[in-house]
């Protein structure tokens, strides 16, 4: 079972899924940096002076690291970085959920759909569940890499 879960066949495919997700999410955010800055600011977790720099760099970091994972370049480091990013997203969403402060995650750019507070809180829970799922993909990639290095 462990061998199948960590097989290179499965690992490559899961890495493609994880990488594609981040590249697509990054492109959506690169298209509208002011909108993403607004979403980051709404989280009320980042100092105002750092909001813009984060809104400019984070989407490109997602694209660069996602592309590296997609093309098999520095895959271990790429998977680690994506895991860290996912942990940060999960914590940020969870803090605002605990505050009952509805925020759009901004994961795929700015949403223009008007939603109620309850709908937005429900969306946050879904976003956390999705990020936990992606974190499992990153963990699989890291475990497979470790197994590969151990066998060398």
């Amino acid at each position: 079972m462990r061998g199948r879960l960590l097989s290179s066949w499965l690992t490559v495919r899961l890495q493609f899924v994880l990488a594609a997700f981040f590249v697509v999410a990054g492109i959506a955010k690169v298209a509208d940096p002011p909108g993403f800055a607004h979403e980051i600011h709404n989280f009320q977790l980042v100092p105002g002076v750092a909001v813009n720099a984060m809104a400019l760099v984070l989407p490109w970091l997602e694209i660069v690291v996602g592309s590296a994972l997609f093309f098999g370049i520095a895959t271990r480091s790429a998977a680690r970085i994506l895991a860290v990013l996912l942990l940060v997203f999960i914590v940020a969403l969870s803090i605002n959920l605990a505050r009952r402060r509805p925020v759009d995650c901004g994961c795929f750019g700015t949403s223009t759909v008007v939603k109620t507070t309850e709908q937005r809180l429900a969306d946050m829970k879904l976003a956390i569940a999705r990020d936990v799922g992606l974190l499992l993909l990153a963990a699989q990639s890291l475990a497979a890499e470790r197994e590969r290095l151990r066998r060398r």
């Binding site: 298209a31 800055a37 105002g48």
Partner: peptide, 12 residues
């Protein structure tokens, strides 16, 4: 409309 200053001034 899409440009951002690197340092914003949005602090509450």
């Amino acid at each position: 409309q899409r440009k951002l200053k690197w340092v914003g001034s949005y602090d509450l």
